[in-house]
């Protein structure tokens, strides 16, 4: 348990990258990028977890309650936004690749080489 969440993050990252290496479809590759990125959320939030801590809000709790790390949560929030926007941009590009090349298969996209 002590390092399981961290290892899981590494596994997810490699799984996503593996998906991109073997991908036969650029849209699929962008999806795999989203998978690889979710590893960063898992790592950040696992790092910030405090045993027995509650969520960092003080609406109806005592001000001395032990809370989990709010900083990593803010970082993860930023990360979620960044990931979503980059995914959107890349999907837009993939759509245009399909229009101009007639395919989204990396094996067939040979316009740039050498």
């Amino acid at each position: 348990m002590t390092i399981l969440p961290f290892l899981a993050a590494g596994w997810i990252f490699l799984a996503g990258v593996h998906g991109m290496v073997t991908s036969r479809n650029a849209i699929h590759a962008v999806g795999c990028l989203a998978v690889a990125q979710s590893s960063t959320y898992v790592l950040l939030l696992a790092v910030g977890f405090r045993r027995g801590g509650t969520a960092p809000y003080f609406s109806d709790t005592s001000l001395r309650t032990r809370v989990v790390d709010p900083v990593v949560q803010a970082l993860a929030l930023t990360d979620v936004v960044v990931g979503a926007t980059v995914t959107a941009l890349l999907l837009g590009l993939a759509m245009q690749v399909r229009k101009r090349h007639g395919t989204v298969d990396p094996d067939a996209l040979t316009g740039l080489k050498g």
Binding site: M20, T22, P106, L109, T110, G111, L112, K113
Partner: peptide, 8 residues
């Protein structure tokens, strides 16, 4: 040849 333009 290494600069293949292939994403993978």
């Amino acid at each position: 040849r290494l600069h293949s333009g292939h994403l993978g």
